[in-house]
């Protein structure tokens, strides 16, 4: 589902790019929030909560709530509602609070 027409916002067509969710190729528009591309592809579970391992989905959409923290190109705790999509990105569901050692 995508919004094509909006009373005050324009949605200029952007190039389609391929990225990877859990290793599976998906398509999205370059520069849109990663979360938007995932949502359009029907992906609703973005991470699992650190304590009780419950599924977490798209929630505040403005970088506040930590519900959408995912691992992007090996970097944990990326707010996919804010991060822009680029071709070839490797996006994975995050489990736990994220090990930052791998990224340095």
């Amino acid at each position: 589902m995508r919004i094509k027409h909006h009373p005050i916002l324009d949605f200029p067509e952007k190039p389609k790019v391929t990225f990877f969710f859990e290793g599976q190729p998906l398509e999205g528009y370059e520069g849109e929030p990663i979360a938007a591309a995932l949502h359009a592809a029907g992906i609703r579970v973005l991470r699992y909560s650190p304590e009780l391992h419950r599924p977490r989905g798209f929630f505040c959409a403005i970088g506040n709530c930590s519900s959408c923290l995912m691992e992007v190109d090996g970097v944990p705790n990326v707010r996919v509602c804010m991060e822009k999509l680029r071709a070839g990105m490797q996006v994975r569901r995050q489990r736990g609070k994220g090990d930052i050692r791998a990224t340095h």
Partner: peptide
């Protein structure tokens, strides 16, 4: 800071 893996 934000929390990360507590075993760091």
């Amino acid at each position: 800071t934000e929390p990360v893996d507590p075993n760091l």
